[in-house]
Design a protein around this nucleic acid. Structure first.
Lengths: 128, 128
DNA sequence: GTTAGTGCTTCCAGTCACTGGAAGGTCAAG
DNA sequence: CTTGACCTTCCAGTGACTGGAAGCACTAAC
């Protein structure tokens, strides 16, 4: 199938699929007219990438996951470790965002928010 | 003061300060030897940037905040609006991360995590 | 047979907010 | 006078795409 069809079926933009080829994540062969020709296995890889990227794995992590996916003698522990590490990362990000939110909403709560110029948010940013 | 001192006092790397100048956020004048010379006002701007960036505002938002900071006739409502919009953004990001976390931890919980190859995480990514 | 329109190709540049490094000028201490 | 820290500019790279231009390839309609 052509790249447009592969894009539709994988949920990835064609541009992204070409980019994934450029960085060695997929290797479709070419039709006689020079068009990329995607096999079902290629499509599986693309779908796999779409999902794992959607779960927040970096390209390099996806590369690793793909190699585990295609390695029949993988240990599930390896995959689980990656998933748990990612969960830890997510937890750290959530904590950071929550702390940011707390600061910002405290500032916003103190700001009367009318047409007068005095504003505790600005004051705080200015460090005064 | 020189860039090194400004860096120390603002908490920003010198590289970043030069970058901020390049994109027009600060305009230090130059000493006779060509070194950047930062006034106290410049330092205030840098500190302001350090804080607002730390609160998750984009460079363009910081630019806007700076202009409000230096506009004595600003309306505090403008600043508050920006802060509240940012809080909304943070909330959306937290929700997204929480949903990711839920998916990932459900997957990880189902994975026995030993040296056998069968792994529900991989199965899910593969869409099987 | 020609034309229009869509889809494919490559390549280059831009995004965001820096960060690293090379090559070279300047300054203060010893 | 040398050493080493600090400063300068410029160029390139990061991650993961995304946009756009220029130019083939294919299909359907007229």
């Amino acid at each position: 199938m052509n790249i447009g069809t592969a894009a539709q079926k994988s949920g990835l933009p064609a541009k992204t699929i070409r980019y994934y080829e450029e960085i060695g994540l997929v290797h479709p062969h070419r039709a006689e007219n020079g068009y990329r020709a995607y096999s079902d296995a290629d499509l599986h890889r693309l779908r796999f990438l779409q999902r794992s990227r959607g779960l927040g794995f970096s390209i390099d992590e996806c590369r690793l996951l793909l190699s585990l996916y295609e390695n029949d003698s993988r240990a599930s522990a390896d995959v689980k470790e990656l998933a748990l590490a990612k969960i830890g990362e997510i937890d750290r990000k959530i904590a950071e965002l929550r702390s940011l939110r707390k600061t910002l909403s405290a500032l916003a709560a103190n700001c009367h928010g009318d047409d007068r110029p005095d504003c505790p948010i600005i004051d705080d940013l200015a460090g005064t």
